[in-house]
Simulated assay, not measured.
Amino acid sequence: MRLQAERRAVLSLGANLGDRVATIDAAVRALEAIDGIRAIARSSAWESPSWHPDGEGLTPDYVNIVLVVGTTMEPLDLLDATRAVEDALGRVRAERWGSRTIDIDIVTMGGIERAEDRLVLPHPRAHERQFVLQPWLEVEPDAVLPGHGPIAELADYADGDAWRLA
Protein backbone atom coordinates (compact mmCIF):
# COMPACT_ATOMS: atom_id res chain seq x y z
CA MET A 1 0.00 0.00 0.00
CA ARG A 2 1.41 3.39 -1.03
CA LEU A 3 1.06 6.17 1.51
CA GLN A 4 -0.27 9.47 0.20
CA ALA A 5 2.02 12.41 0.91
CA GLU A 6 0.51 15.05 3.15
CA ARG A 7 -0.72 18.22 1.44
CA ARG A 8 -1.37 21.55 3.11
CA ALA A 9 -4.97 22.76 2.82
CA VAL A 10 -6.62 25.98 3.94
CA LEU A 11 -10.20 25.68 5.17
CA SER A 12 -12.55 28.57 5.83
CA LEU A 13 -15.22 27.94 8.46
CA GLY A 14 -18.18 30.22 9.04
CA ALA A 15 -21.40 30.19 11.04
CA ASN A 16 -24.22 32.68 11.53
CA LEU A 17 -26.89 30.68 13.35
CA GLY A 18 -27.03 29.54 16.96
CA ASP A 19 -23.92 29.64 19.13
CA ARG A 20 -21.59 30.46 16.27
CA VAL A 21 -18.29 30.11 18.14
CA ALA A 22 -19.31 26.83 19.80
CA THR A 23 -20.36 25.41 16.44
CA ILE A 24 -17.05 26.37 14.83
CA ASP A 25 -15.17 24.83 17.78
CA ALA A 26 -17.20 21.62 17.35
CA ALA A 27 -16.42 21.60 13.62
CA VAL A 28 -12.69 21.96 14.28
CA ARG A 29 -12.79 19.08 16.79
CA ALA A 30 -14.72 16.93 14.30
CA LEU A 31 -12.24 17.68 11.51
CA GLU A 32 -9.27 16.91 13.77
CA ALA A 33 -10.85 13.54 14.64
CA ILE A 34 -10.90 12.44 10.99
CA ASP A 35 -8.11 10.09 9.96
CA GLY A 36 -6.01 11.89 7.36
CA ILE A 37 -6.55 15.43 8.68
CA ARG A 38 -4.08 17.15 11.02
CA ALA A 39 -4.60 20.72 12.24
CA ILE A 40 -1.55 22.94 11.75
CA ALA A 41 -2.82 26.45 12.54
CA ARG A 42 -6.09 28.06 13.55
CA SER A 43 -6.90 31.75 13.33
CA SER A 44 -8.77 33.65 15.96
CA ALA A 45 -12.48 34.25 15.35
CA TRP A 46 -13.44 37.07 13.01
CA GLU A 47 -16.87 38.55 12.43
CA SER A 48 -18.31 39.75 9.14
CA PRO A 49 -21.67 40.96 7.90
CA SER A 50 -23.84 38.42 6.15
CA TRP A 51 -24.42 38.88 2.47
CA HIS A 52 -27.65 38.11 0.67
CA PRO A 53 -28.63 38.94 -2.94
CA ASP A 54 -31.55 40.99 -1.58
CA GLY A 55 -29.30 43.10 0.65
CA GLU A 56 -26.62 43.02 3.35
CA GLY A 57 -27.69 42.64 6.95
CA LEU A 58 -30.88 40.65 6.36
CA THR A 59 -29.40 37.74 8.31
CA PRO A 60 -27.16 37.56 11.41
CA ASP A 61 -23.43 38.33 11.11
CA TYR A 62 -21.01 35.48 10.54
CA VAL A 63 -18.19 34.29 12.73
CA ASN A 64 -15.31 32.99 10.59
CA ILE A 65 -11.97 31.28 11.13
CA VAL A 66 -9.32 29.81 8.89
CA LEU A 67 -7.95 26.38 9.72
CA VAL A 68 -4.74 25.26 8.04
CA VAL A 69 -4.49 21.48 7.91
CA GLY A 70 -2.19 18.80 6.64
CA THR A 71 -4.11 16.06 4.87
CA THR A 72 -3.37 12.81 3.10
CA MET A 73 -6.81 12.92 1.46
CA GLU A 74 -7.53 13.56 -2.17
CA PRO A 75 -9.47 16.79 -2.82
CA LEU A 76 -12.89 15.18 -3.31
CA ASP A 77 -12.38 13.01 -0.21
CA LEU A 78 -11.60 16.15 1.81
CA LEU A 79 -14.72 17.78 0.37
CA ASP A 80 -16.81 14.76 1.40
CA ALA A 81 -15.28 14.88 4.90
CA THR A 82 -16.09 18.58 5.32
CA ARG A 83 -19.64 18.00 4.09
CA ALA A 84 -20.08 15.16 6.58
CA VAL A 85 -19.00 17.48 9.41
CA GLU A 86 -21.43 20.16 8.19
CA ASP A 87 -24.25 17.61 8.06
CA ALA A 88 -23.44 16.31 11.54
CA LEU A 89 -23.66 19.87 12.87
CA GLY A 90 -27.07 20.52 11.35
CA ARG A 91 -26.21 22.25 8.09
CA VAL A 92 -29.27 22.66 5.88
CA ARG A 93 -28.74 23.43 2.21
CA ALA A 94 -32.11 25.04 1.46
CA GLU A 95 -30.95 28.16 -0.38
CA ARG A 96 -27.64 29.18 -1.91
CA TRP A 97 -27.07 32.37 0.09
CA GLY A 98 -29.03 31.31 3.17
CA SER A 99 -28.01 31.41 6.80
CA ARG A 100 -26.16 28.36 8.06
CA THR A 101 -25.15 26.65 11.24
CA ILE A 102 -21.77 25.89 9.67
CA ASP A 103 -20.09 26.31 6.32
CA ILE A 104 -16.70 24.77 5.54
CA ASP A 105 -14.98 25.74 2.31
CA ILE A 106 -11.72 24.39 0.94
CA VAL A 107 -9.87 27.56 -0.03
CA THR A 108 -6.74 25.93 -1.41
CA MET A 109 -5.12 22.52 -1.27
CA GLY A 110 -1.49 21.81 -2.06
CA GLY A 111 -1.39 24.32 -4.91
CA ILE A 112 -3.90 22.23 -6.89
CA GLU A 113 -5.85 24.10 -9.54
CA ARG A 114 -8.99 22.38 -10.82
CA ALA A 115 -12.50 23.23 -11.91
CA GLU A 116 -15.13 20.52 -11.69
CA ASP A 117 -18.83 20.53 -10.91
CA ARG A 118 -18.29 19.51 -7.27
CA LEU A 119 -15.09 21.37 -6.48
CA VAL A 120 -13.17 24.37 -7.76
CA LEU A 121 -9.66 24.94 -6.38
CA PRO A 122 -8.60 27.41 -5.31
CA HIS A 123 -12.00 28.60 -4.10
CA PRO A 124 -13.29 30.89 -6.87
CA ARG A 125 -14.19 33.82 -4.60
CA ALA A 126 -11.59 33.55 -1.81
CA HIS A 127 -9.49 36.36 -3.28
CA GLU A 128 -12.33 38.85 -2.81
CA ARG A 129 -13.49 37.86 0.69
CA GLN A 130 -12.09 39.70 3.69
CA PHE A 131 -13.61 37.05 6.00
CA VAL A 132 -11.24 34.53 4.39
CA LEU A 133 -8.24 36.76 3.76
CA GLN A 134 -7.97 38.44 7.19
CA PRO A 135 -8.02 35.24 9.29
CA TRP A 136 -5.67 33.55 6.80
CA LEU A 137 -3.32 36.53 6.91
CA GLU A 138 -3.23 36.16 10.70
CA VAL A 139 -1.88 32.59 10.57
CA GLU A 140 0.09 32.66 7.29
CA PRO A 141 1.10 36.25 6.46
CA ASP A 142 3.31 35.15 3.56
CA ALA A 143 0.74 32.84 1.96
CA VAL A 144 -0.03 33.02 -1.74
CA LEU A 145 -3.39 32.15 -3.27
CA PRO A 146 -2.65 30.22 -6.49
CA GLY A 147 -3.67 32.22 -9.54
CA HIS A 148 -4.22 35.42 -7.52
CA GLY A 149 -1.05 36.28 -5.62
CA PRO A 150 -0.02 37.12 -2.05
CA ILE A 151 -2.96 37.22 0.34
CA ALA A 152 -1.53 40.31 2.04
CA GLU A 153 -1.93 42.23 -1.24
CA LEU A 154 -5.34 40.70 -1.94
CA ALA A 155 -6.56 41.79 1.50
CA ASP A 156 -5.60 45.39 0.69
CA TYR A 157 -8.00 45.46 -2.26
CA ALA A 158 -10.79 43.03 -1.38
CA ASP A 159 -14.22 44.44 -0.68
CA GLY A 160 -16.17 43.72 2.44
CA ASP A 161 -15.50 44.03 6.10
CA ALA A 162 -14.14 41.68 8.73
CA TRP A 163 -13.11 42.40 12.27
CA ARG A 164 -11.54 40.29 15.00
CA LEU A 165 -14.23 39.04 17.37
CA ALA A 166 -13.81 40.42 20.89
Rank of each mutant, 00 (worst) to 15 (best):
R93K: 13
R20L: 13
E47C: 15
P122W: 04
R164K: 06
V66D: 00
H52S: 06
D156E: 03
L79H: 04
I104L: 06
D19H: 04
V66W: 00
I151N: 08
R114F: 09
I102N: 00
G18F: 04
S50M: 01
D159L: 15
G14P: 07
R96M: 11
A27V: 02
A22P: 05
G55S: 07
R2S: 08
A94I: 09
P53V: 03
E32H: 10
L89R: 12
E153F: 05
R125F: 05
D156C: 05
L67D: 00
R83A: 10
A126E: 08
H148L: 11
I102F: 00
A158C: 11
R114I: 03
A9M: 10
H52M: 05
D61N: 04
E116G: 06
Q134P: 08
L137Y: 03
P53E: 10
V92T: 03
D61L: 06
I106R: 00
V120D: 11
L89M: 14
L13H: 00
L11W: 07
D19C: 10
E74I: 11
L165S: 04
L89A: 03
Q130C: 09
I104D: 01
E32Q: 12
L67Q: 12
V92Q: 08
D105I: 12
W97C: 09
L154I: 10
A81S: 04
A41Q: 01
A143M: 15
W136V: 11
S44H: 02
L11A: 12
R42D: 03
I65Y: 07
R164V: 10
I104V: 02
A27Y: 00
T71Q: 13
I37K: 07
G110S: 04
Y62L: 00
P122C: 12
I65K: 02
I151P: 07
V107A: 14
G111W: 05
A15R: 03
E74N: 04
E113M: 15
G110F: 14
T23A: 12
R93H: 07
R93N: 01
E6T: 03
Q134M: 02
V66E: 01
Y62K: 00
L133D: 12
E138Q: 06
L11Q: 15
A143H: 02
A94M: 11
A81N: 15
D117N: 01
S43V: 12
D161P: 02
W46E: 10
R42W: 14
D19T: 01
P75W: 06
V10G: 14
A26Y: 05
E6D: 15
E128V: 05
H123C: 12
M73P: 07
A88V: 07
G70E: 12
L89T: 13
A33S: 12
L133A: 03
S50Y: 05
W46F: 08
A15L: 04
R164M: 08
A152K: 06
M109V: 12
R20C: 11
Y62D: 00
P141S: 10
H52N: 15
L137K: 13
G149M: 13
A30H: 04
V28E: 09
R2N: 01
W46Q: 14
R118G: 03
W136I: 01
D77S: 08
A27C: 15
I102L: 01
R2M: 04
W51Y: 12
A166H: 13
P49N: 09
G18T: 06
G36E: 09
H123P: 01
G57E: 10
Q130W: 08
L165K: 09
T59F: 13
A33V: 02
S48E: 04
D80Y: 04
